[in-house]
Computed example of a mutant assay.
Amino acid sequence: MKRAGTAVITAAAALALVQPSAATAATSTTWTAPTCNRVVGDGAVTFTTDLGASLAGTTGTLKPVSYTHGLVALGAPDTLLATRNSELQRSTDAGCSWTRAGSLGSASARLTAGSGTRAFAWEPNGGYLARIDGSTVTPLTSPAASVVGVGTDPADPNHVRLAGNDGRLYDSRNAGATWTATGTPAFPAGTGVYSVTFDAADPNHAVAGAMVRGGAVTTDGGATWTASTGLTSGTSANLFATAVSPANPQVVYGIGIDLAESVPGSGSEGRHLYRSTDGGRAFAKVLDDTAEHKLTNSTLLAPSPTDPNVLHFEYGTYFMGYGTDLFRLDTATGTVTKTHNAFDGVSAIAFNPAHPSVMYLGVEEAGSPS
């Protein structure tokens, strides 16, 4: 069993806390920082104010096998949603207490925040899709056999976009009740599409990642796509996931493999963190997979909400009781710092909208190997 509050700082004693920008500070009248040092709940979500050096304790102990794949801060004051397996949980006090809000039709659903108390739940590479309004979960019919991304429109609470594994975007103007295919696919037919990440500030801007063909970006809602460059020294790459910086949407981070380098014994075996400064059109390698900072195909990417040069990512495993490393990459200085905790993994990260030094962590308990 793992307990929040047992994090050990390993190389980050001098880490500076993230400070709110003028834009986020303006919301401080609606969102507050958590006033507790112990979270009331089953242990699926905790928080840190020092980048993972210490974690808030929880009244409950997470039991195996539990995964918290979905975690979002909503527009409603002090309100967050999280998933634990197929259960939807809700907090209305900035993460100090969590209660059951409903059930989902997927044990691995992700969450995309909408306006107010609205969010959308969706299963990566599965067909499950639902709209959440407060504590009401409304199942929706997906326009694609498999969902690889969902984006919302801050200007219109009923406008939502969905990406299917056919590489095409679908548009809804009635909160997911009906859908219309838009534009052209990001990649040729038959391409395996891993993910599509939408810019939270502009749903017309999205970055797609695929098998072998690497990445592609659209800025016109999928009407046209531009192939991403810089992902490989050869002709092909796998781009597994991307994340658009909330601080500057021209900055996009990615995790992938340069297939020209992916041979056994080649050090990183081609696996890298990438960064783009032009919205996803051109990427550059910023970090290699090493023993000091481990990268996987499913590495979680969480850009800083206030500094486009900073990316948070993680590595965790139950094997040999390893636990989880939380990393902070500063691309301006090229430095990587690390904190460690005893959880089997951190599978979701969200930030307090008005106090971004508060980082919420969705954790997992995979159990010990038999």
Rank of each mutant, 00 (worst) to 15 (best):
P305R: 12
V212R: 05
R90F: 00
H340C: 13
G214Q: 04
A121N: 09
G334Y: 09
A177H: 06
L329E: 00
G334H: 09
T335I: 02
D330N: 14
L71M: 11
N204T: 15
F47I: 06
S304M: 10
S21Y: 01
H312G: 02
T136K: 14
L129G: 05
Y194R: 06
P188N: 15
A16H: 15
N125S: 15
S347F: 02
T317F: 00
F351Y: 15
H340T: 12
G367E: 03
A208V: 04
I255C: 12
A216T: 12
A216K: 09
V244W: 10
L259R: 00
T6Q: 15
A121P: 04
N297T: 13
Y318N: 15
T242D: 01
T136I: 06
G5H: 10
T49E: 11
L311H: 06
S266W: 01
S142L: 11
G57T: 12
S54F: 07
T180C: 01
A25C: 07
G230K: 10
P303E: 04
R275H: 10
D202V: 13
R271V: 00
R213I: 07
E261G: 06
D278H: 08
A7F: 11
V251Q: 02
A208C: 05
D78F: 04
D202Q: 08
V148A: 03
H293P: 04
S146K: 11
F240Y: 15
G279M: 06
P185A: 14
R90A: 00
H355P: 02
H159N: 11
T46C: 12
A332S: 15
Q19R: 10
G265F: 13
A348D: 08
G151K: 00
G334S: 09
N37F: 06
D78V: 06
A177E: 12
L169W: 00
F187C: 06
A354E: 00
T229A: 14
L295K: 13
R275S: 13
T180W: 00
V286N: 03
A241R: 01
G221H: 09
H312C: 02
